[in-house]
Design a protein around this nucleic acid. Structure first.
Lengths: 226, 226
DNA sequence: ATCCGGCATCAAGAAGCCGTAAAGAACGAT
DNA sequence: ATCGTTCTTTACGGCTTCTTGATGCCGGAT
């Protein structure tokens, strides 16, 4: 099920969008300002963002740039204004689509479908579980098995493991982990990495003191080795 | 340079689009019917297609479906009609964007930029590992293998190696290395180069005393020889 | 033959980063 | 309101990496 984040300070419109999207099978979160938008993108991990440019706190284009600083998720921009300059500015800031109010709900839904379709290249693929001699990570089922027993991971632990496994074999920078798990504001809080890596190792590694799967690349980041 | 295919039976409009796109650095091909469009997509390999729905021979939506049968290239649909049903049909048929005539050229150019930006993820950089008889450097995975075993490199060592490998075969001046690794302020600290080149050779060269891959060019700089 | 500059190698102190444990704060469920 | 879980924050020891200086080697110039 695709997840949609609706960002609009027009409460009636936001509500209408939420109802319609949910009726078409989307999981929807609604926020009404730019700050909330950035936070929700980081933690809700939507497949698509519908962003009204007329927000109370931050300029919509700035919100867009903020998102684009670390994510390539599709963003559909809504605006009451329809001058060419407005559109060009939003599109060049990284918007995927620009819709002028008023708009038909059917059209917006179609644009959401188009955005989702683009945003998940190779959709339909069933992620194969990643198997190691000591444990198995099933991203699809959101589950880790060790000796046939499920391992209890907290949401944050899972989130880190998921990112590392998705980049299996490749190096993931500490910054990227922080941004993807905690959001752009946490870019420098490197101590989180140490704490949670230690947790994951304690739960997954046969010998946590000498990691075999969750490898540290000093000064740069971490790597999952299958 | 990005390539754009313009499909429109309105000769004046097609010509105007061609001129504007070329003025902005795109390579443009223009066709006036659906049959030609399908042929050109197959052989011209554009990065983006601008498709007018009102074609003389084949219905525009069918052209779109034909393209989508075997290609995921971004398609921007143009149409004089702006009913919601039309838009929904085109978007669901696989269009990436829907623009209603009349439109501003600046806006269309912005939408083309957005489509090109989206359309080429990973098309450019698929960094193949650099293989030598003694070791392998995988820039993408940020990793060096020797006899199948990963070689531990410090951040600075990796940084130097990366620069040399990216300029594989070519000479890199000492100054350039210093600036790229340590920053502009270290431009004259040639001492660092010797220390770290020695480290790299010790870790990578079969006979560090007689380097085969990390070559010194006396008085100028260094070179990576694959 | 000797001098000199650029290069390679080694070693040691300083600085910074990583792993670990543990305690307080926030949150949700009963 | 209380309990248990998870998140956040702090402190410290150990280890890696960076930086710097000393020393030896080689080739070209005097």
């Amino acid at each position: 099920m695709s997840k949609v984040l609706v960002v609009d300070d027009d409460l009636a419109l936001a509500r209408a969008l939420g109802i319609n999207l949910r009726a078409h099978g989307y999981e929807v979160t609604v926020v009404h300002d730019g700050r909330g938008a950035l936070d929700r993108v980081a933690h809700f991990h939507p497949n698509v963002v519908i962003l009204d440019l007329g927000l109370p706190d931050i300029d919509g284009v700035e919100v867009l740039q903020g998102i684009r600083g670390w994510s390539s998720i599709p963003v559909i921009v809504l605006s009451a204004r329809s001058t060419s300059a407005e559109k060009v500015e939003a599109l060049d800031a990284g918007a995927d689509d620009y819709v002028t109010k008023p708009f038909g709900m059917a059209e917006l839904l179609a644009r959401v479908r188009a955005a989702v379709r683009r945003g998940t290249p190779g959709t339909g693929e069933v992620a194969e579980p990643v198997v190691t001699p000591d444990f198995t990570v099933d991203l699809d089922a959101h589950r880790v098995l060790r000796d046939g027993e499920p391992v209890r991971l907290t949401p944050t632990e899972w989130s880190m493991l998921e990112i590392l496994v998705r980049h299996s074999g490749k190096l993931v920078s500490g910054k990227q982990l922080l941004v993807d798990v905690w959001g752009p504001a946490y870019e420098t809080e490197t101590h989180y990495l140490r704490v949670y890596m230690a947790q994951l190792r304690r739960k997954l590694e046969p010998d946590p003191a000498r990691p075999r799967y969750l490898i540290t690349e000093p000064g740069v980041g971490y790597r999952f080795q299958a």
